[in-house]
Amino acid sequence: MLKFAGKRVGMMIISLFIIILITFIMMHAVPGGPFTRERELPEKVEKALNEKYKLDDSLPEQFFDYIKGLVRFDLGPSFKYQGITVNDFIENGFPISAKLGGVTLVFILLSAIPLGIWSALKNGRWQDGAIMLIATLGVTIPSFIVATLLLYLFSYQLNIFPTYGLESWQSYVLPVLALGGYSMAFIARLMRSSLLEVMGQDYIRTARSKGLSETQVVVKHGLRNALIPVITILGPTVANLLTGSFVIEKIFAIPGMGVYFVDSVGQRDYTAIMGITVFYATFLLVMTFIVDLFYLMIDPRIKLD
């Protein structure tokens, strides 16, 4: 276990380093410096700015400086907003995004798993058909379309839910549905097929024949095994929620990190783009790592590879 964790942490650090390197190279490959504007700056000012941000150093030196900053959790200043650091963006945006993402994740798990189980137990009947039809729709329709349609229908036409912000519980309903829709549908389908497969196994027959009640068979023998694929998909699900939040936050005007990211992309705020990308990537790698550890713990059959 420890050996596995150590190896994974090593891999993670290598991945992270490569991600930072690629991001750094890409952001420095952009033609023109961050202070190249339509209006020429006086040469002295530009020189002073370049000196302040150490843009005259060689690239490896700059990269080394950036890494040094990262180790101290310092992502540097924003190039577009004076006096604001990239850390400020993350400090302001991340709690909001994390709250929305967390609520969505809980909602996904609480709805998709029971739906998948129900669908599998009613295999072939109309309940199964209905759930799977909705799930197929959920997997194919892009989240930003779901979001805008929900917004139009429930906020503009029916006036049930607020159109923006995250002030009350009602304002969570639409963003959570739009953000979680895809993952919900995906996990429900996965849960169904995995439970169906498990229920066909010999040990289920054994459990039935020794006289266990159907609930015991499903919960103790079926579900525990069927949940394993669902847990492996949790890592990608978190990634999905994060990137999905770019558009959902924009549509529902939620001041989360996704909005900051999309805004910095639109304004070509290179340090902010770089910082937020590195932050996202780190967060994702850590989440996947945790999910993998968890996965190892619940399934002793997995080889410690």
């Binding site: 991945s15 952009v30 992309v265 790698l285 996947t288």
Partner: peptide, 15 residues
């Protein structure tokens, strides 16, 4: 594959 692809597509587009 550990890199979130959406982020990289966006970065390439910015570039």
């Amino acid at each position: 594959s550990t890199i979130p692809l959406t982020l990289y597509v966006i970065l390439i587009m910015v570039l």
